[in-house]
Nucleic acid binder design. Structure first.
Lengths: 233, 233
DNA sequence: CCAAAAGCAAGAGCACCGCTCTCGTTTTGT
DNA sequence: ACAAAACGAGAGCGGTGCTCTTGCTTTTGG
């Protein structure tokens, strides 16, 4: 076979490093991820890795972006699987369970995304976009629920302070959503991720005996509170 | 002054190490906490520290316990500050805002408790007790709300699976609480910690423009959903 | 009371880490 | 054809957690 061109080799090495890094992340977690160990596994000396990633943090950032994309893929795929002619309640449940399912299947990656931020790390713009795909799934459903005229559970009036606080959300909406409904959806967002984090990080230990059942109950309640109707009206 | 007895010296050194460790934790976070650096600051050689804490993880565990106690103190103090003749809604708000306030004031400690678990770390029983004080505050309010007969927002029926899943909660209750109310309170718990974690770990960046206002709105909505009445009936 | 035991601090040392720099070699673009 | 750029290897720096040995001091038991 012909020798690899420099560009090909670079692409392949980069991928190999990322593959091993992802595997190591899944095994030992982000804190124990070692550039030297990755170099060994990929057949390089440690300093050579720095030709591809300028620092351990940059490598971790790449893994964070990857993880966001994976989670976003899982979420969108789950929603797409039930999209056509499916009511919003089922789509919301699909999204929520996709998030939890992915988190349980990839605990270290989830912790990397939603656990304590890595010390020296500040989110680059690339991760912001990826992260937007997750919240985007919620926002899309919220908008559709608004146009469908779903009647969510009674919500407190929204004062001017909170109205202003929500100012960062509105630009992301193509269809306007009432402040009250926005608050309810943000709460659902917090509840889902709060539940998953508390479960995954061990804070429900000895309290909840059946995580699956309880999450089902919680998401069901969220569907009710959001006023997502099972049939289409 | 008389020379310190061995026991006195040991207690003092242990405290000095913990003090410096806590300070370092607050400054650089748990991942960058260094036994050698602590030893330097406390005027010891690194190996001497191991006479007091057998490993870095044990030292971190001690800090976790301390942090739990601190948070629990803050929560109970906040609740006690408004306890007498105060309605449940204000007490719940006091608890929720105490949690968030403490988290904002001690972000690294909060991350240590509710962020990604430290890799090699498994919670010893001592931390379980401390953690129980936090959830205990919620459970106490839930019980009082039950005996007060508060009417929470409509809740889905609880099937046998979820009833069994809640089996770990009931033993911790002195006064029985209905399954539906228990679910609502667990959801409030997830929402509060979910919100704080999402806020603190940067996931609301560019979305929510005023965290204080939004948290106020969310906790107010939780009060309503839990049916906590402002006046006493 | 005094020797044995136990506790303590220090230092050297091991294996690892992230990262930098230099030095030949190979590929690239002109 | 040749200079420039990219690359891999190796040595090395300063740091880490942790262990072990060596002396010294305090406590303890006969």
């Amino acid at each position: 076979m012909p020798p690899l061109s420099r560009a090909e080799n670079r692409a392949e090495q980069t991928r190999a490093i990322l593959d091993r890094a992802r595997a190591q992340l899944a095994e030992v977690g982000p804190a124990a991820l070692s550039v030297r160990q990755i170099a060994r596994e990929v057949g390089l000396v440690s300093s050579a890795v720095y030709r591809y990633f300028p620092s351990r943090d940059e490598l971790l950032t790449a893994l964070i972006v990857e993880a966001y994309e994976e989670l976003a893929d899982a979420v969108e795929e789950a929603e797409a699987g039930v999209r056509r002619r499916t009511a919003l309640d089922k789509r919301f449940l699909a999204v929520a369970h996709a998030i939890r399912g992915w988190a349980l299947a990839h605990p270290h990656q989830y912790a990397l995304l939603y656990g304590s931020p890595v010390p020296g790390y500040v989110a680059p713009d690339t991760t912001v976009n990826s992260a937007g795909r997750i919240s985007g799934a919620f926002l899309r459903l919220a908008q559709e629920s608004e146009v469908a005229g779903d009647e969510h559970a009674p919500a407190l009036p929204v004062g001017t302070a909170e109205h202003r606080a929500l100012g960062g959300i509105r630009p992301a909406l193509e269809t306007p959503v009432s402040d009250q409904r926005t608050v309810r959806w943000l709460m659902a967002w917090s509840t889902v991720f709060g539940h998953v984090s508390l479960e995954l990080f061990g804070h429900m230990h000895r309290g909840i005996l059946d995580y699956d059942a309880h999450f089902k109950q919680v998401t069901g309640q969220l569907v009710a509170d959001l006023g997502l109707r099972p049939a289409r009206g």
